[in-house]
Design a protein around this nucleic acid. Structure first.
Length: 308
DNA sequence: AAGACGAAAGTGGTTGA
DNA sequence: TCAACAACTTTCGTCTT
C-alpha cells in the first residue's frame, strides 16, 4: 500500500502539528510555521511545456533530443536533425530513416490509442468523472513523451496515471480499487504512480480522509446524517492531530464505524473494513484512538441504551 | 455463533547515518 | 547502501454479545 503520509514529523522542530491548508495547497507546521509543501500542482504549466517542446518538435522537426519508448519495436531513435543532415547525401539512408520515423510515430500513436482505450475502460468501470479521465490521459501522454513507459507495462502506467488524476481532483480511489479495475497488482500501481509523478514533477498532496466518506458511506448504505457525523468526527480528529502519518482510508473507515454506531446503523468492523480496503485491526486501532481523544463514549452509550 | 479485541510476527516502504 | 522505523496486514487465541 502506498504511504501517502511520509510526512509525519515536522523536519524543523520534530513536532507533529502538521496542518494541511487546502486552499493554499500547502502543509504547514503549526508549531514552528515551516511550510513543508507549497507547490500547488500546476499541471497547465507542465502541459504547455510539453506542447512547446516535444510535440512541436515532432511535428515540425525542430532539432532536439528525442527519447523514444520502444514498446513492440524496441528501437532507439536518433535526433531528427540527423535525418535532415543526411537528406540528399544518401538516399537509401534517408528513406530508411524516414521509414523509421514513420514507424516510430505510428507506433506511438497506435500505442497511445490502445492506452487511451484501456484508460477509458478502467475509468468507466470506476465511474470516474470526465475531468479525471481527461487529466489522466494527459498524464499518460506526457509520460509516453518522456519515455517513462520503458520497462513498464502500458497498463500499469495507465493505472498509475488514473490514480494520480483521482488524487489531484480530490476524488481518490484506493489502490485496491484501481487494482481491481485494471488487473494490475497494487504494488505495481503504487510503484508506477510514484515513479511517474516524481519524473513529471507532479506534486500531490496527502489525500484527505473526508474525500473517501461519500463512497464508503453509500457502499454501506448509511444515511446522510451518519455520513455528516463522520465528517464532524474527522474534523475533530484532524484538530486532535490524529490524522498525521495515518492512512486516510483507515481513518475514514473508523469514523464511519463510530458514527454508524452512534446513529443506530451499526455495521460490523468487517463490513466497513471490506468497503474501505483495510483490515479490522486497522479499524480497531483508529477507533480506539478516536475514542481516547474525542470523548464519544457518551454518545455511544446513549445509543446502546436505546437499543434495548 | 458471530463479533470484537489485542498480541505477535510479517510485509513493503521511508528515512537518516 | 543499509538498518531502524512506522504503518498496516495476517493470523490467532480469548473475551463479549
Amino acid at each position: 500500500m502506498a504511504h501517502h503520509h511520509m510526512i509525519k514529523k515536522c523536519p524543523e522542530c520534530g513536532r507533529i502539528n502538521l496542518f494541511w491548508n487546502k486552499e493554499k495547497g500547502e502543509v504547514i507546521c503549526k508549531d514552528c510555521g515551516l511550510v513543508i509543501e507549497d507547490k500547488m500542482i500546476s499541471f497547465d504549466q507542465e502541459w504547455r511545456e510539453f506542447e512547446d517542446s516535444d510535440v512541436g518538435q515532432r511535428r515540425t522537426g525542430a532539432p532536439t533530443t528525442y527519447t523514444k519508448y520502444d514498446q513492440g519495436l524496441g528501437t532507439e531513435i536518433g535526433q531528427k536533425s540527423d535525418l535532415y543532415g543526411l537528406e540528399g547525401k544518401d538516399r537509401n539512408k534517408f528513406f530508411r530513416l524516414r521509414k523509421w520515423q514513420y514507424r516510430i510515430s505510428t507506433a506511438i500513436e497506435r500505442n497511445l490509442k490502445l492506452a487511451l482505450a484501456e484508460l477509458k475502460r478502467v475509468s468507466s468501470y470506476l465511474k470516474l468523472p470526465k475531468s479525471v479521465e481527461e487529466e489522466s490521459a494527459r498524464i499518460y501522454t506526457l509520460a509516453v513523451q518522456r519515455g517513462l513507459v520503458r520497462g513498464r507495462s502500458m497498463e500499469s502506467v495507465v493505472a498509475g496515471a488514473l490514480y494520480a488524476a483521482c488524487r489531484r481532483h480530490e476524488v481518490p480511489r484506493t489502490l485496491d480499487e484501481l487494482s481491481d479495475a485494471s488487473g494490475i497488482e497494487k504494488k505495481e500501481i503504487g510503484r508506477t504512480y510514484r515513479f511517474i509523478t516524481r519524473e513529471l514533477g507532479i506534486t500531490i498532496l496527502p489525500s484527505n480522509p473526508v474525500d473517501y466518506l461519500p463512497r464508503f458511506a453509500s457502499a454501506l448504505k448509511l444515511s446522510a446524517e451518519t455520513q455528516s457525523k463522520a465528517v464532524d468526527i474527522l474534523d475533530r480528529a484532524q484538530k486532535a492531530e490524529l490524522t498525521s502519518g495515518r492512512g486516510p482510508t483507515g481513518i475514514a473507515a473508523a469514523a464511519l464505524y463510530v458514527s454508524a454506531s452512534i446513529h443506530g446503523e451499526k455495521r460490523t468492523q468487517r463490513e466497513v473494513a471490506d468497503v474501505a480496503g483495510v483490515t479490522e485491526v486497522t479499524i480497531r486501532n483508529r477507533y480506539k484512538e478516536l475514542l481516547d481523544s474525542l470523548d464519544l463514549e457518551k454518545e455511544i452509550k446513549k445509543q446502546k441504551k436505546k437499543r434495548r
